[in-house]
């Protein structure tokens, strides 16, 4: 067991836990975006930052990836932390301010508008879908492609992946509904709107008609429907 202090509260947790888990288990709230209970920590969104006391002064760390240490003293609500979370939330608002999840997350750290302008996109690149496909499903049909401002979630070559088993786990974990089930009606059984180079035929077992699926939206380049 490891003993540490979070927001003045003395806490005991098992070795190998992260600061975020230690806090949550003890009823201390830390906002998160890319963190998901079922996935390995990713450390991509920086909403979960906390302040760690060190001999050389306070240090800002991402609580979702930082392992608990004996005697650690952690503060989750300082002015600096509040400021950092606000900027992260403002940037998220600039990109995906139209999604309820981001609005709520931003509101929880006191942000309701943004001074920044970014191209609007429901996907906030949290990589939950990519990690879920790899870690939970074990398939890895999609990944992050390109870099910098061109970064997108995409299947290889932006063509519907033959590896996808259409389990919709990505839909399940996406916080902003950037990957939706909307396109799946009773006959259109695929969650992805990526164009495919293969013509799909009607299935002889079920009533799945590919041409109709094609009409629904086979033009989009990335996951965003």
């Amino acid at each position: 067991m490891i003993a540490l202090t979070i927001d003045g509260k003395e806490i005991e947790v098992e070795t190998g836990r992260t600061l975020l888990e230690a806090a949550r288990e003890n009823g201390i709230h830390i906002p998160t975006l890319c963190y998901h209970e079922a996935l390995k920590p990713y450390g991509g969104c920086r909403m979960c930052v906390v302040e760690l006391e060190t001999p050389r002064g306070p240090r800002v760390v991402a609580s979702c990836t930082y392992p608990v240490e004996d005697g650690a003293v952690v503060h989750t609500e300082t002015d600096q932390i509040g400021q950092l979370r606000k900027v992260a939330a403002q940037l998220l608002m600039a990109r995906a301010g139209h999604t309820p999840f981001i609005q709520e997350l931003a509101a929880s750290v006191g942000v309701d508008s943004t001074p920044y302008t970014l191209p609007t996109d429901s996907c906030v690149l949290c990589s939950r879908c990519v990690r879920a496909c790899q870690e939970i499903v074990g398939i890895g049909a999609i990944s992050m492609a390109n870099r910098g401002s061109d970064r997108v979630v995409a299947p290889p070559f932006s063509i519907s992946s033959a590896d996808c088993i259409e389990c919709a786990t990505c839909v399940q974990v996406c916080p902003t509904d950037a990957i939706t089930l909307k396109l799946i009606t009773d006959r259109n059984r695929t969650v992805h709107v990526w164009p495919s180079e293969f013509a799909r035929g009607a299935c002889r077992l079920c009533e799945y008609h590919a041409d109709e699926w094609m009409d629904v939206g086979a033009q989009e380049q990335t996951v965003h429907g």
Binding site: V130, A141, S143, M144, P156
Partner: peptide, 12 residues
């Protein structure tokens, strides 16, 4: 390595 990962590295 899954093809998606190869693609990810190749485009990075």
């Amino acid at each position: 390595v899954p093809l998606s990962r190869v693609y990810s590295v190749a485009t990075f």
